[in-house]
Design a protein around this nucleic acid. Structure first.
Lengths: 188, 188
DNA sequence: GTCTATAGATAGATAGAC
DNA sequence: GTCTATCTATCTATAGAC
């Protein structure tokens, strides 16, 4: 008898979802275990049963996005030619920006979230790999600026409340259009 | 005898500078009054003499940037034609992005900072005016996406540690080049 | 698996001495 | 203007009952 998929993740996943929502509104440092517990209608001790420390929750919130990142980075790394590599990486980033809006904004902006990313070997390593596939070897100052600015903008814009009326397809299309307009032509 | 300029601001300004530095590293919520006091080599009570609440410090940190914003927004609003308005607003934003890198990143990304911006009438009003001058009346979905993405990217990229080796002139030039490439042509 | 109870530290904030 | 001292509330985290 195999373990039912829903049985293992339920408790943890409810915590992760509540945490992400609260992080978006108050920041990681501004969110206490008390708040997470209250959002779930349980006590702090119940949350501590699933995660033995506050940082463990932050890591668990980040994990699925970095799993996804690892997949598209691996694809981009084996693509033939700089342009194909960049296209693959951009498509992957846009996917995350639209499918994980709130998390993307936190990774890009919340200093407390950045601390956790930098302090975990795996996350930091993936960020480095992403960076390499985005800027390539020997990038010019202009290319580096463009990648930094558009990458940052991509992470932030998904969570922009002013764009709440736009459907996912419009967002995705426009993001790619802007990225291509700035990043692809000069690289030929 | 006029009051010496250094006498009024010294205490407050030292707190503001220390706070901004700590906010950048740990986020607003992750920065305690204890940490600010320790950075200045004084006690919490000494900080409370200058600011009677934690939020007052956040407001004081934001104030100079919004003063600057008010000036360039006023100029942009009276410019002749949509294109000139947009150009004026973009130039002003770039100025803030390069001259107040850390604060710009916090405004764009730290949820705790956003809460303070939204809860203060003056700040919220200026953000609304900026938005109007950036997107204009009856913007298309594409224009709104572009403004959101590039505006967010602009705020984030100033504080990007990977670009620390680029001089201010290079940053400014490249920012404007990217902004113009995406925002100006389609508007004629 | 979720609870009560509680520890120990630190948070923001105030009163009053100097 | 900066200090000591202190208050209350809340924080993360643990131990152990149910």
């Amino acid at each position: 008898m195999a373990k039912p998929v829903a049985a293992r993740g339920t408790g943890r996943e409810r915590v992760i979802e509540a945490a992400l929502e609260l992080y978006s509104a108050h920041g990681v440092s501004g969110t206490s275990l008390q708040m997470i517990a209250a959002a779930l209608g349980v006590t702090k001790a119940a949350v501590y049963y699933q995660f033995h420390a506050k940082e463990d929750i932050v890591v668990a919130v980040l994990e699925p996005a970095f799993d996804e990142m690892e997949t598209f980075i691996a694809h981009a790394e084996v693509a033939r030619g700089r342009r194909a590599q960049l296209e693959a990486a951009l498509a992957g980033l846009v996917d995350i920006a639209v499918s994980r809006q709130r998390l993307a904004a936190l990774i890009g902006g919340d200093p407390a979230m950045s601390v956790v990313v930098r302090s975990h070997e795996r996350f930091r390593h993936l960020v480095d790999r992403l960076d390499r596939v985005l800027v390539g070897p020997e990038p010019t100052a202009a290319q580096r600026m463009a990648v930094s600015m558009l990458g940052g903008g991509l992470l932030m814009t998904g969570a922009d409340a002013r764009l709440a009326d736009l459907d996912e397809e419009t967002r995705r299309t426009e993001m790619l259009r802007i990225l291509r307009a700035v990043l692809l032509p000069p690289l030929g």
